Amino acid sequence: MSFPAETRVIKLYSPVPLDNGGLMEQVTMREPLVRDRIAHSKDRGNEEEKEARMIALLCNLSEQEIWLLTAADYAQLTDTFNVFMLPPEKRPKTTSSEQ
Rank of each mutant, 00 (worst) to 15 (best):
P88D: 13
I38V: 14
Q64C: 05
R37P: 03
Y74W: 12
M54Q: 14
L18D: 10
N60W: 11
L69V: 07
V16T: 02
M54N: 09
R91E: 03
L77P: 03
E63C: 10
L86K: 11
E47A: 08
T95F: 12
E63L: 12
P15N: 05
E51G: 09
L61T: 00
N46A: 04
T80K: 11
T70H: 03
R35D: 08
M29P: 00
K42C: 10
C59W: 03
W67L: 12
H40M: 15
T28W: 08
T80S: 11
N46W: 07
L33N: 04
K93W: 03
R53H: 09
P87A: 11
T80R: 00
Y74M: 13
K90R: 10
P32D: 04
T78R: 06
A71I: 09
E25N: 08
T80V: 14
Y13K: 12
R91D: 04
P87M: 09
P17W: 10
T80F: 04
T95R: 01
P92A: 07
E49R: 06
K93Q: 14
E31G: 10
E65A: 13
K50R: 15
N20R: 01
Q26A: 13
I66S: 03
M29W: 09
L68H: 13
V27L: 04
A72I: 15
M29H: 08
P92K: 11
G45T: 01
A52Q: 06
P32Y: 01
